[in-house]
């Protein structure tokens, strides 16, 4: 036993000593193979194409080598246990992570072919192109009208009052809120119910003409009826936008998405058609998570 232990120690010392760029490349290649995502990460018609994305919070390697396309008019659900990196990945897609001190992102993320991490790229229009809806509805402490009109105003999307009014109405209609608020546009956004506030936030996102809408657990603060309304809305919005949604509710992922991506400990384990992921996942970790065997 001793001899074996000694020899393995010697061997490991030897390999450390012999470490070379070639060896490092070999190890990296092995790790890439070992951590390869199961399923097709590519989309025939990608709006967003992420490749070898890594995120570090200081020393912590939060997400590792994530590659994933998100197609036009597609809803993709990002699922996984807390801390798996799904929200971190979502926040990479409109550079929200830039605001976190000590956060570093490597790899490439392309929106319609344009690398969004390219030097000199202005993140303000990017965040209009790739809008975000958060867990808790966060309307501005202003009127319903102003909540929706604010974005188009600062982005200069309307040159006349009539144009602005049209944007506000269209956005509220698309968010399925117009009929409920059309007579109360001057009321404060915060006077609405939780579900209405969330739809107001979606209208606000839509108002600046996005291509992609990111949603980070958009229904976790809502009751089942308000949740159903948002889910119906997501299905309608898919006609016009690409949507990525982070959700802890597997039922919700199964209901609203066409593709599902399962994250675990910073890795993208498996991605596939939603029906396949929920009936016959290929990776045991996905299986354990979706069947409720994994805490």
């Amino acid at each position: 036993m001793n001899t074996l232990a000694e020899s393995s120690t010697v061997q490991s010392r030897e390999s450390v000593k012999m470490k070379s760029p070639e060896k490092e490349a070999l190890i990296a290649a092995h790790q890439r193979e070992f951590t390869k995502t199961i399923g097709e990460i590519a989309s025939p018609n990608p709006r967003i194409a992420a490749r070898e994305v890594n995120v570090y919070y200081g020393d912590k390697h939060a997400i590792q080598n994530i590659g994933l396309d998100i197609g036009h008019n597609e809803v993709i659900a990002l699922i996984g246990p807390s801390g798996c990196g799904k929200s971190t990945f979502l926040r990479c897609l409109n550079r929200m992570n830039d605001t976190i001190p000590g956060c570093r992102v490597t790899g490439s993320i392309r929106l319609d072919g344009q690398d969004i991490y390219e030097g000199g790229l202005d993140v303000v229009p990017l965040r209009a192109q790739v809008g975000m809806v958060f867990q808790k509805p966060n309307p501005f402490p202003k009127s319903i009208y102003e909540n929706v009109a604010y974005g188009p105003k600062i982005h200069g999307l309307a040159s006349t009052k009539a144009e602005l009014e049209e944007i506000v109405e269209t956005s509220l209609r698309r968010a399925g809120l117009w009929d409920e608020v059309k007579d109360d546009l001057a009321k404060p956004g915060t006077s609405l119910s939780g579900g209405q506030q969330q739809r107001l936030c979606i209208a606000r996102t839509i108002a600046v003409g996005p291509e992609v809408i990111l949603m980070d657990e958009p229904c976790s603060a809502l009751d089942p009826i308000a949740t159903a309304k948002i889910e119906q809305l997501i299905d309608e919005l898919r006609e016009l936008y690409t949507i990525a949604i982070v959700t802890h509710s597997m039922q919700q992922a199964a209901r609203v998405s066409q593709r599902t991506a399962y994250f675990h400990l910073g890795r993208l384990i498996e991605v596939g058609e939603t029906a396949q992921i929920f009936t016959n996942p290929r990776h045991p970790l996905t299986e354990d998570y979706i069947t409720g065997r994994f805490g």
């Binding site: 597997m250 039922q251 929920f278 009936t279 016959n280 996942p281 979706i290 069947t291």
Partner: peptide
């Protein structure tokens, strides 16, 4: 339970 994966099958 809305069974999924191997449970669903």
């Amino acid at each position: 339970r809305c069974p999924k994966g191997s449970d669903l099958r």
